[in-house]
């Protein structure tokens, strides 16, 4: 554990809790992509099956359980409790275009051919692109609520901080995992446009709206 990874994890946790808070407080999931949330739930489920097979630390297990619980909780709020507020007309990105390539790639570029490892690899690839339906939705509606913008910023920062963590781990532990690094870089690049808008608009107190 190093400071970059800890900050990354906390940023990830903050993002997930912010989203739950927003939905609960406003009693609405308007502006949130159910498809992105579904993809994240698939990601956590595929990756954290190792809760049953390997133990890393209490911190690790607790975080995994929190991420899993929160993502299923988010789906419950979006598709059941506050379903009438879900803006599915604007959530029209085809997620099979993301799931199928991620699955195919996880059979081609993988450390070793075991079910657990392929699932883990699939989750890494899928996570890299899982935000696309949400970004697509923001571009379609042309705006995002401020709290949704904070959520996206925290979520995007998490993988960016992980990149610093990987650089640090490479020099201190000789740790190098090209699958996570390449996917992490793709994931962070997808947020760049959003980061720019967040810094130039939201941080100056304006609402995020596209020109």
């Amino acid at each position: 554990m190093n400071i970059f990874r800890l900050c990354g994890d906390l940023s990830h946790l903050l993002a997930i809790l912010l989203l739950l808070f927003k939905i609960w407080k406003t009693r609405s999931c308007a502006g949130i992509s159910g498809k992105t949330q579904l993809l994240f739930t698939i990601v956590y489920t595929a990756r954290y099956l190792d809760l049953f097979t390997s133990f890393v630390s209490v911190y690790n297990s607790v975080m995994k359980i929190v991420f899993l619980t929160a993502s299923y909780g988010t789906l419950y709020l979006m598709f059941y409790k506050f379903k009438p507020t879900y803006d599915h007309n604007h959530d029209s990105f085809r997620i099979l275009y993301l799931i199928v390539p991620a699955l195919v790639l996880s059979f081609i570029i993988v450390h070793v051919y075991t079910v657990m490892e392929i699932l883990w690899t699939f989750s890494i690839y899928l996570e890299a692109v899982a935000i696309m339906p949400q970004l697509f939705m923001v571009s379609r509606t042309g705006e995002a609520e401020t709290i949704t913008s904070h959520y996206l910023f925290a979520l995007g920062s998490y993988r960016a901080l992980y990149i610093l963590n990987w650089i640090y781990r490479y020099y201190t532990e000789d740790f190098l995992d090209w699958i996570t690094i390449m996917a992490g870089i793709v994931q962070t690049i997808l947020y760049c446009d959003f980061f720019y808008l967040y810094i130039t608009k939201v941080l100056k107190g304006k609402r995020l709206s596209l020109p």
Partner: peptide, 10 residues
Amino acid sequence: EEFDKVHDEL
């Protein structure tokens, strides 16, 4: 060689 990699990140 046996694959013994444990993914220690989240």
